[in-house]
Design a protein around this nucleic acid. Structure first.
Lengths: 355, 355
DNA sequence: CTGTTAGCGCTTTCAG
DNA sequence: CTGAAAGCGCTAACAG
């Protein structure tokens, strides 16, 4: 209503880069101390209605935006309301879904998320962790690329909690949220076996990634459970991309003794395998069950049976742990497992050819 | 080598949350002034080798990490080395690819990226823009959800440049990097026509999104160019998701006069259309050309002919503009168009049935 | 309920 | 080439 202050900052041309208003400007315009402005901004109860209104009005008139960085610099808890999410590649479906789950949870807490792609490169991991610490993020959510995470100990000790998703930490005690890789793989292979297959191949992703090993273990467990022998030519692990997977499948099919069913233990491997089957017109004859769902899996013909990971669930749980740590939870690190689920669509139910 | 300072901060239990070292700690340990440390950190040339080595040693010993927020608070240019990327949904393929391109360019400039999903919600747009400004990002890259962007004027004036990607600004003069939507759509429809189709339907996404209108214009231009009449029942625009697209296609097929070819002007629309065709066993009989490529488009049978957008190109160009603005480029806003390309895969070359 | 003073960690003056 | 003092925008710790 009553404004008693004149334009305090002289002539301001429309084009000249306007300086952002600070708390001091607001205080001056409202005729209160800067501290009172701070109280209003932070919703402190102990401000009279009259002053609060004056301050609110000044804030609106000046279009004042509190500087979060300055605030956290001085604030006791030092929180910056930013977290880092470091993962494989923001462009791949798994990471993208994880990212979205994390973003949603962070938004509820007024926190912004830095996303960074590691491309399975340990060096990128340490670089991005460093960048995150320079920005003083409140916490780090990591799908690790590197083989050892001891270097994170000092970050954790100096107050930046780290939570692992999808893959466990090594050389560091930290929270981890993982999928039930072994059980999921076992379920898929049992499913193939129960549809009559005895010649089931394993095609897996990079060996150094922990999930690969767990899924291979699940494959072996299922074979054992059904009394099937594991044959050397039936296992191709350490496939880095779809192309190598396609070639590995081709080689198996060309052998004198081709498998009648494929368990593909990773996204890209599944895709590579399907491509080879399509090329040979075998996509309706060789059964396929894949680990991890992928876009369009239910539009391919036959539709692709997969063990789906609850990616959003993993993300949500991991970010929840992270915020608990940020809030001060000092309980021992824990590992949580999020269950997978078999999605039956057709490709996994193709029977073996009559002998 | 020679260390002459004793442990200056008393007994420190391994578990107690270690305070991060500051420049003052480094200065004390190195026996120099805090300003010299600052010079070393910022690579100022005017520091003698001896001092530089002492400082470097102290930094390493204390595991010192400069606080970027504190630095930018005082720094003349106020740069925070963070930008915001606000887009549709980090989990969808278009946004994810854009995100990756932006991340890569930002990384080269030592800048971190906040990604935020708007879900086509104008309110989210303003909320996230606000959050970004509270964090004092150096710039904002926006795939807008809202109908008007005049509110961004004050951000731009107070020094936060905004660059638009995929969709142009309204009510604001700002840089924009867009695809050649009309030309791309035209090319796809001409392609269908040149394969003998005269009954070509248009299925488009939400009408209020500018790309939809441009693509519809391209469809019309192509029809006109080939002397084909536009018939009312052939156009279904404003389809918000794959389900509505599927239903729209079904309705057209059920009409007495079904189209022989479909131009699907958006990702999800293409997918919905294909689903309906599959359900009716028509996926080998009705031609389809879609706007915007999507994962697995080349694994579906028939493989899907699309007009592919150069998403990475759009992202790279947009982020480049943004960094130019951040660096102080004050030239008039410009609109740039990134060309699309027709990817011929099979579904678009299906001929019309003999009459 | 309100204000004053000090200082977060750093860079900018401006002196030597 | 080096350093002392001031201050970025804000909150903590005390006053009153």
């Amino acid at each position: 209503m009553q404004v008693s202050v004149n334009h305090s900052d002289g002539p301001r041309a429309a084009s000249e880069p306007a300086r952002r208003a600070t708390m001091r400007d607001v205080a001056a315009l409202a005729g209160v101390s800067i501290k009172t402005v701070s109280r209003v901004i932070n919703g402190a109860p102990s401000v009279s209605d009259g002053l609060r209104d004056r301050v609110t009005g000044a804030i609106a008139r000046l279009d004042f935006r509190p500087n979060l960085a300055a605030s956290s610099l001085r604030r006791a808890d030092g929180a910056t309301r930013q977290i880092a999410l470091l993962l494989e590649d923001v462009a791949n479906p798994f990471s993208a879904a994880l990212s979205r789950a994390v973003e949603d949870a962070a938004r509820e807490r007024g926190t912004l998320v830095f996303a960074g792609s590691l491309d399975e490169d340990p060096l990128r991991e340490t670089e991005l962790v460093r960048a995150a610490t320079l920005h003083r993020v409140d916490g780090i959510l990591l799908v690790p690329a590197g083989p050892d995470h001891g270097y994170l100990e000092r970050e954790v000790r100096s107050g930046t909690p780290v939570v692992f998703a999808d893959r466990p930490p090594r050389g560091l005690a930290a929270d981890a949220v993982l999928a039930t890789n072994e059980e999921g793989a076992r379920e898929a292979v049992l499913h193939l076996a129960d549809h009559g297959h005895t010649e089931i191949a394993f095609l897996g992703g990079e060996r150094r990634i922990s999930t690969s090993a767990e899924r291979l273990a699940g494959y072996r467990a299922a074979l054992a459970e059904r009394g099937l022998a594991e044959r050397p030519g039936r296992v191709a692990d350490d496939l880095p991309d779809a192309g190598s997977a396609a070639r590995a499948v081709a080689a198996m099919l060309d052998s004198g003794d081709p498998p009648t069913a494929l368990f593909t233990a990773q996204n890209l491997v599944t895709i590579g395998a399907i491509r080879t089957l399509q090329e040979r017109g075998l996509h309706g004859r060789v059964a396929v069950a894949g680990f991890d769902d992928f876009p369009m899996a239910d539009l391919l013909l036959p539709r692709v049976t997969v063990v789906a990971q609850d990616v959003a669930g993993i993300g949500a749980l991991a970010v929840r742990r992270l915020f608990a740590r940020i809030a001060g939870d000092a309980s021992p690190p824990r590992e949580e497992r999020v269950p997978t689920s078999l999605v039956v669509r057709g490709s996994g139910e193709i029977p073996p050819p009559p002998r």
